[in-house]
Design a binder for these strands. Sequence first.
DNA 1: TCGGGTATTGATATGTTATAACATCCGGTC
DNA 2: GACCGGATGTTATAACATATCAATACCCGA
Lengths: 160, 160
Amino acid sequence: MTTIGFETHDHHACVSDALAKAEARCAASDLRLTPVRRRVLELLLAEHRALGAYDILGHLSAEGLGTQPPVAYRALDFLVKAGFAHRIEALNAYIACAHLGADHTPAFLICRSCRSVAESDTAPSQGRLGDAARDAGFQIEHTVIEAQGLCPACQTGDAA
Amino acid sequence: MTTIGFETHDHHACVSDALAKAEARCAASDLRLTPVRRRVLELLLAEHRALGAYDILGHLSAEGLGTQPPVAYRALDFLVKAGFAHRIEALNAYIACAHLGADHTPAFLICRSCRSVAESDTAPSQGRLGDAARDAGFQIEHTVIEAQGLCPACQTGDAA
DNA sequence: TCGGGTATTGATATGTTATAACATCCGGTC
DNA sequence: GACCGGATGTTATAACATATCAATACCCGA
């Protein structure tokens, strides 16, 4: 057990479920979950925290799966494009998708203390941002919504 | 005349207004708008586009105001902390605040083609993100909302 | 099974963004 | 004048990301 969205859950099941879904989706969509890609997804799933590309690369290189930056970035690009992972812009880091299989516009709650990340969902073109875009004639292709602050666990022990 | 929020306006007045407001705010709040800081703000105000720290540094160094990265980053940090500029996380770049003087949670419409940026405003803790945070017990300190796509001007001439 | 196209991987180098660390200067104050 | 704090100068390096080109694996149709 560990936390997801700052709540306890059966993490082992959560990881294997996600991997199974990813494999199913790859089979269905003619995508290849190669060893490096699969391992990177596992690494991201292992924590509900954002990992940098070089964190990932460190694990890969310890396991003999590759030592150069492009190895990590290619795998991460694949996972992000396939919807299996998201990039956290505010951290220049990556996290496994918590809603694997659903096409969605994610929003993130990012703890600045422990770097854990909860993935929430949003109504895409609703709200004031969508209104502003329509008014301006701006055509939205992708939206980044990231809130930073303190998760419940870090609010108690933590200093500013 | 050029564009702001993708609309034409009197840009000369817009720049001098913003500088005047920034000076007034510094005087009132015991902040120092030193030459480098003032010049960086001018550079950002000169365009309603995001500029990278090294773009800024290029201008500064051409003008004899400093050649090393910390010069640009210190000035940008000051401007962001003072609320005179915003950082665009999705671009690792900076832009002058379009609502100088108001305490606000900005949202951005970012054109991926011409890099122009419109600043809109948001209701901070309203909407699904605020709900999700309350449910989770997450304490939001700062929110990043950035939509990327095509501005009206770039929708016509532009390819994908 | 052969060839040809496409996706993936390997490898090298480099580009881009950002900060650490420490010295120095400058303006105000006691 | 001695001190203090903020700002700046300077050097070095950390952290993040991509371009490029060669080699290999995989699939598919002739």
